[in-house]
Design a protein around this nucleic acid. Structure first.
Length: 428
RNA sequence: GACCCCAUCGUCUAGCCUGGUUAGGACAAGAGCUUUUCAAGCUCUCGACACGGGUUCAAAUCCCGUUGGGGUCACCA
């Protein structure tokens, strides 16, 4: 049975690269009907923090990467010590004070990597003796890693490229301990736009940052997947259930990929467009409240109509409160462009006439509004745009946004009246 | 520096294994359509096999080298 693991260290957030490694492990387990083990590598007690642990667990859950088993290395120190003693007793390791050090014998190591055609060759003569147990009695990464991967029956080690040079160090330990050597698959790194590792300088690195910026987990997963694997047949958008049917770690790319926020945004926009308005609203609501929009004061029909109005034009959830605020606040604030529109001319007569027409409407729907609006402008002998722009500015405070007639239908007669009246000299 | 990995449009990639394609798609960019704005959508355009040698009738594809990029060289993980 396939058993894979993701082994983060709680000394930082779960970042984009870690998220992709976790995703590929999880996918391989799900594709092969295996198990996905999560192992927290918290052997560095000083640097490990509870807040990072929580953040990592939350991010994995948010991405939908559920684990089957969970282990903490900090609870397994006795096990590591036991195996180190064994190597000591066998004469394969020696002591240096309280530390236990493995004597590396010169040999040629060949590593078969699932995503590379040729085996990778190393000469261990170039490797120093390896510390197993440090002076403070905690195990080193390579030692704890090997013990755990073996005891947890990990069959495939899928990890970042940056671990390639750790692999020979680990293989000598597998051999010395008499453990079977698992399969390896080293994923290429994700690079920042500047080349080199993705770093905070290049942009957000934490999965939680993308959550906060309004990306959907499915969209981020879809993007991360494309960064190193292709469904073929020119497909860009793919449901995770479909991926599980065709995923194999052997098909992972071996070239490093540059993180491209533009494409992520596009994918996110596609997922937002496809989402059910109700579900989208569940995600939007907390963001609106956070921005101080009193959305609880409105009924759900109103809210869903607004969601539908913006669903096609936002690319992140965070765009929503910014674009739609005028639906939720009475005293809207004009942008400087909107102000310019309204200051350009006195629209008292036009606004007044428009309100009269709207008042006479039997049905206050988009189509009726548009018909009466177009009739009015033709009677006034002006182009539609000449009235559309000032009305939009007065109603929304903005010069950009959804179609005017659609937003008027949603906004409702009362709000329209109140907002246009403000610009009619001498009142109605 | 030593060791290791990698190399197709600006970016992500298909094609490479099993040589014969007008080297395909997506994002971005540019143009147009639509139109009340901004988006979206649709149509079109731009744009790549890093270089040099082989092997072969034929090389993006196989081999070697060069160059370039990246990674690792901790009692961090």
């Amino acid at each position: 049975m396939v058993r894979v693991r993701f082994a983060p260290s709680p000394t930082g957030n779960l970042h984009i690269g870690g998220g992709r490694t976790a995703l590929f492990n999880w996918l391989y387990a799900r594709a092969k009907g295996g198990k996905f083990v999560l192992r927290i590598e918290d052997t560095d007690v000083a640097r490990s923090k509870k807040e990072y642990l929580d953040e990592i667990l939350n991010s994995l859950s948010w991405l939908g990467l559920t684990w089957d088993e969970l282990y903490y290395q900090s609870q397994r120190f006795e096990i590591y010590k036991e195996y180190a003693q064994k190597l000591l007793a066998q004469g394969l390791a020696y002591q240096e004070g309280p530390a236990i050090i493995f004597k590396v014998q010169p040999e040629k190591i060949r590593i078969n990597d699932l995503i590379r055609q040729e085996p990778i060759e190393f000469d261990t003569a170039l490797i120093k003796d390896q510390v197993l147990i440090k002076s403070d009695l905690s195990p080193t990464y390579n030692f704890a890693c090997v013990i755990d991967d073996a005891l947890m029956n990990i069959t495939h080690i899928i990890r970042g490229d940056d671990h390639i040079s750790n692999t020979p160090k680990q293989i000598v330990l597998y051999q010395a301990l008499g453990f079977p050597i698992p399969e390896f698959a080293h994923l290429p790194l994700i690079l920042g736009t500047e080349g080199g590792r993705l770093s905070k300088r290049t942009g957000a690195t934490a999965i939680s940052d993308y959550r906060a910026m309004g990306y959907l987990p499915q969209a981020l997963v879809n993007y991360l997947l494309l960064l190193g694997w292709s469904p073929g047949e020119n497909q860009e958008l793919i449901a995770i259930s479909e991926v599980i049917k065709k995923f194999d770690i052997k098909d992972a790319n071996k070239t490093a990929a540059t993180f491209d926020l533009e494409k992520l945004r596009w994918i996110n926009a596609q997922y937002i467009k496809k989402a059910a308005p109700q579900e989208l609203w569940e995600m939007l609501k907390p963001l609106c409240l956070e921005k101080g929009l009193q959305v609880n004061n409105f009924d759900s029909n109103y809210l869903l109509s607004i969601v539908k109005l913006f669903q096609e034009r936002i690319s992140t959830l965070a765009d929503f409160p910014e674009y739609s605020d005028f639906f939720f606040i009475e005293e809207i604030v004009l942008t400087s462009e909107a102000k310019k529109r309204l200051d350009a001319k006195d629209y008292s007569r036009e606004f007044k006439l428009l309100l009269e027409r709207l008042d006479g409407l039997e049905h206050f729907d988009c189509l009726s509004i548009e018909n009466s609006f177009r009739l009015l402008v033709s009677e006034l002998n002006i182009k539609a745009g000449e009235l559309v722009h000032p009305v939009r500015s007065a109603l929304t405070g903005k010069t950009i946004g959804p179609g005017l007639f659609e937003l008027m239908e949603v906004l409702g007669k009362k709000r329209i009246e109140a907002r246009l009246t403000k610009y009619i000299k001498g009142g109605v």
